[in-house]
Design a protein around this nucleic acid. Sequence first.
DNA 1: AATATCGAATGGTTTAACCATTAGCATAGT
DNA 2: ACTATGCTAATGGTTAAACCATTCGATATT
Lengths: 239, 239
Amino acid sequence: MFKRAKQSRVFQDVVDQIQDAVLNGKLVPGTKLPPERELKDIFNTSRGTLREALRVLEQKGLIEIKLGVSGGAIVKRIDAEPVVESLALLIRSGGVSLEHLAEFRIKIEGSLVELAAARATKKDIKELEALFNQAKVYYEKNDWENFLKTDEKVHTFIGTMTRNPVFQFVQKTIHDNIHRYYAEYLPMNKERTLENLTDFEKIIDAMKVNDAKTASAIIMDHVKRFSDKMQEKINGNSK
Amino acid sequence: MFKRAKQSRVFQDVVDQIQDAVLNGKLVPGTKLPPERELKDIFNTSRGTLREALRVLEQKGLIEIKLGVSGGAIVKRIDAEPVVESLALLIRSGGVSLEHLAEFRIKIEGSLVELAAARATKKDIKELEALFNQAKVYYEKNDWENFLKTDEKVHTFIGTMTRNPVFQFVQKTIHDNIHRYYAEYLPMNKERTLENLTDFEKIIDAMKVNDAKTASAIIMDHVKRFSDKMQEKINGNSK
DNA sequence: AATATCGAATGGTTTAACCATTAGCATAGT
DNA sequence: ACTATGCTAATGGTTAAACCATTCGATATT
């Protein structure tokens, strides 16, 4: 009938109060909180306890702390970083394998490109073409590192084209976490890079006429092909 | 060229050491860390600083802290909770609207059901049928609250059927966050509940023969229909 | 005017003490 | 013998006061 009375931890109360203030818009990003020695009086707590609260808020990505005079806790604009980080932890702890990630990525990136293609503006296409030309230069110079970086930018940019922040941060999270495997298991060469570049060109063509289905099919095939290659590589190495 | 040398914060070093130990398997879930008063000596720090480190580790979901004698910090099995929580924060902070969520959900749940249907075992089907019968009872008793809870269980269970933890936690996160809107904007009635039940039956039928495409199409239509209704309701109310 | 120096504000850390919760044990009462 | 009560010690939670380290701006010096 009754719930166990939650044992209050003072720092948790402080965390909740500040978090609520941020979520209610009472504390807007950029606001500087009072110095610790004042905050501790406001919340009627000790500095140690207050600092535990600040650590939690910092970890949640709600505040950022600067040193020195005129330093202090500043309310941050909430971004996807804590999500990315905690997912990375989950992955690294072994709860998620490369296969799991790749399987998810194939599905999600197909849908994502479909949306992006449907909503592509002329400005988007121009931006994509600029990235394509950049990638082409790196391809010709055999500069794999910068090629990959540009490839990364392309994926991120297509994410923004969806105009949907959920897709955007999922895209970012997946790529942040999958990149580690790529660098380790899928060394680039001229042939593979060209393949990548060709797929890219096809997608831009499909997007130019807002052909969502085609664009989606190409990216799904692209992701699947690269994932399979990486999987082969891993299986091969482990034998 | 160089990065600014990160100003060392002692508690961060403690966090890193313990986190690394967990990720390297040197500390397995269930292990109890020494009491604070010993840990502070081990790391050669003060108790306050050590506790700041523990707060961060707790927030990351790496440890859990129990009170009283034989209490202390216990290494946890890392789960999706921190990911779900930080994503919820991102959503609640206003970066994500219901439309964004619904759009994402339509796509992801289609793919998810497709996978689940392809991998459905007889045991899975039995479990789904049990949930279906339970939902039917609540439908007949006009018990909307429990009907919705069961509906929630169905979605979660279909998530587990994918055998892919990424899909599982995305499904959980989306539903955790969308549920708030549902309860507020989409009051259930006999007609709507029946519609829900009918869709559910169709999906089970498709899954019985591992017809992934059909199952996927049904759920996408289902989610889209309910999202549209909710959207209407919201637009109507706000006018 | 440019540069060097210093001081104050502010986060980072330490220490030592006390409070609150809990598990286990000892004791008393039946 | 068994149960219930209460005591004790271990452990996390909190407080307080002091000092260190970093940074910015004011002031002095050249």
